[in-house]
């Protein structure tokens, strides 16, 4: 990461520190989701990790907030907050403009039979029992067709802004101006079932469910790409068992059923390799020309 001294005029500089019991500190950087708050959180938490402060036991960046677990017997809360305020001032003073990261292509079978079967089973928990999740999401976001909606979901890249909920699930925030952000409410009542590797959507976040289980996000499709590997069989996933990290850049690519089936077979044989390449994200470049960044993501993946 390369620091620069340029200030962001639109940056809200407040942070809200809240003690969560005697072992956690919760820090809200912004009530609303925005790329600046995410960037600030990633910058603070990565600097905190670099300092290796005795008593700091877990550092969890999130979308527009972060959380630190600490041992109060070794590090009093006041000292932890003081340290974080200092790091935050550094970050705000020398806004990290660039993030050295990677881009990852995630193949998606939209409108697949498995999420379709599941969403039909839980229709009574949905805002619109008469249609599918995709039809509903397309309509309320002003798209004339589901195809147009899928195009919007897959054309522009996404930042992995948080990893969690269950093991390795990435929350993703799309790199498009606010007026083009897709927004969809969660189910009225959460489902008790979601297929593994479902591509879901709630609020302004897309996600990939890492395991089968309960969920409240709308369901748009499935990816054949394993993202959580407790059995250690997938060559693209390291000993952490988890593929994604906050700061990864994701590009969804629609695939058809035959390509999906071939990829599932490859993954089952431990031969699946995601398309990925190193990438340097520049916040200023993105602010000036988001389309150029999206094109560069595409180019980097195609060169690969």
């Amino acid at each position: 990461m390369k620091p620069s001294t340029q200030h962001d005029p639109g940056q809200a500089k407040s942070a809200r520190y809240s003690a969560a019991g005697d072992e956690f500190l919760f820090v809200e950087l912004s009530e609303a989701m925005n790329l600046e708050a995410f960037f600030r959180g990633v910058s603070i938490t990565s600097r905190l990790a670099e300092r290796k402060i005795p008593g700091v036991t877990e550092i969890c960046p999130a979308n527009a907030s972060y959380q630190v677990r600490y041992d109060p017997d070794r590090l009093p809360l006041a000292r932890l907050i003081e340290t974080l305020e200092q790091i935050d001032a550094e970050v705000l003073g020398q806004q990290v403009q660039r993030l050295e990261t990677r881009v990852v292509e995630v193949p998606v079978l939209y409108n697949d039979p498995w999420t379709h079967e599941t969403l039909m089973r839980f229709r009574d928990r949905h805002q619109d029992p008469s249609g599918t999740d995709l039809e509903y999401a397309a309509r309320i976001n002003g798209f004339a067709s589901v195809d147009g909606f899928i195009e919007a979901h897959s054309a522009s890249p996404w930042f992995v802004s948080m990893v969690g909920f269950v093991a390795g699930l990435p929350f993703m925030y799309q790199m498009v101006p606010r007026e083009r952000q897709i927004e969809v409410p969660k189910y009225v009542r959460p489902r008790t079932d979601t297929p593994k590797q479902t591509v879901g959507y709630g609020g302004c976040f897309s996600c990939i469910y890492s395991v089968r289980g309960a969920g409240g996000y709308q369901m748009f499709g499935v990816t054949p790409m394993p993202i959580y590997d407790p059995s250690g069989r997938q060559p693209h996933i390291d000993d952490s068992m988890i593929y994604f990290r906050p700061g990864d850049i994701v590009k969804h690519r629609p695939v058809d059923r035959s390509e999906y089936d071939a990829m599932v077979a490859a993954a089952e044989a431990g031969r699946f390799r995601p398309k990925t390449a190193p990438f340097v994200f520049d916040l200023d470049e993105y602010r000036e020309a988001p389309e150029a960044v999206a094109r560069r993501v595409e180019e980097v993946l195609n060169e690969h």
Binding site: G21, E28, E31, M33, A62
Partner: peptide
Amino acid sequence: PPFGAGDDPSNIVDACYPIGS
């Protein structure tokens, strides 16, 4: 509702959950 949080007044922009929260 803040952008990205969802419609219900009990919704927030998805964040970390402390153990015991």
